[in-house]
């Protein structure tokens, strides 16, 4: 490990190393924040305007269909973020890339929040349309499990002091989780059909364009919001690690001075 660190500065960087180096990332991602803010705010304004004023009521669900415009994007993000974390953990395990560690770490709380939002909006959508806040339906149950997995990962991150080692270990369990997700999904579906035939099928409606335009705009807006928050959180984490390193250096220096006296 130490050897690699000594060699690293000598090695010529290719373009990917340049972009993905934490220090470089800090420099170029600064120019990303403002455009992302602008895109996110505009798409949210357009999307919300469409969602409330420019889309019809559903012939079955009435106005409650408007909950879909925030439910589906958050549910999509809950899965998208996990996949992103899994890809980062491959990067962290195989290439031992510090930026992948950082991406993985800051994505977990965001993913947990969006998953919780998806469950929350889902419950509020379910009450008027199906008459119940919660149903042990396959999709809902597996989303709940996903939330538990996120929370477990966050707890694991927080229990390690050495963040470099934590990254590799969290990566392993993230990957075990991603292999397991299809099995969990399958088992929950199987279990649910065993218990009772599903009463719920209104999710399968085909959508007219007036409804999917706002939906796609909101999907885009939420994804942009995630990318914005993720980028900023990654910058925060890199700066935090920098500060930690400086602090350690200082403490070492001070204690060294004392020893000399």
């Amino acid at each position: 490990m130490n050897k690699i660190k000594q060699i690293a500065p000598v090695k010529k960087m290719n373009w990917f190393d340049k972009i993905a180096h934490p220090g470089q990332f800090l420099i170029w991602s600064r120019y990303l924040i403002l455009p992302l803010i602008i895109i996110t705010i505009t798409t949210f304004i357009i999307g919300l305007w469409y969602a409330f004023f420019n889309s019809p009521e559903d012939y079955q669900m009435g106005n409650t269909v408007r909950i879909m415009y925030i439910h589906v994007p958050t549910a999509w993000l809950s899965q998208f973020i996990y996949v992103m974390m899994a890809i980062s953990s491959i990067g962290s395990l195989v290439w031992r890339h510090p930026l992948a560690d950082v991406a993985m770490k800051v994505a977990a709380p965001l993913g947990a929040t969006f998953t919780a939002m998806a469950l929350f909006t889902g419950a509020l959508w379910g009450r008027p349309t199906w008459g119940t806040y919660w149903e042990w339906d396959g999709r809902m149950t597996s989303t709940l499990i996903l939330l538990l997995m996120y929370l477990g990962l966050i707890a694991l991150w927080r229990s390690f002091d050495d963040q470099l080692r934590a990254a590799k270990l969290v990566a392993i369990i993230t990957l075990v989780g991603v292999i397991n997700i299809p099995i969990i999904k399958f088992s929950v579906d199987w279990w649910n059909t065993l218990h009772q035939p599903s009463i719920i099928s209104s999710k399968g409606i085909s959508m007219p364009p007036e409804i999917y335009t706002p939906l796609f705009i909101m999907l885009f807006a939420f994804t942009m919001l995630f990318i914005l928050l993720q980028t900023n959180a990654m910058r925060t984490e890199i700066i935090r690690r920098k500060a930690d390193r400086l602090m350690r250096k200082k403490i070492n220096k001070n204690s060294g001075a004392k020893n000399n006296v």
Partner: peptide
């Protein structure tokens, strides 16, 4: 304007708005 289930829609949007703002 939102009809019989307005309260659910408002709570859903309000909740998501509050959490999102808190996150930001």
């Amino acid at each position: 304007a939102l009809g019989p289930h307005a309260i659910f829609i408002l709570i859903a949007y309000g909740g998501v708005a509050i959490v999102t703002l808190a996150l930001i």
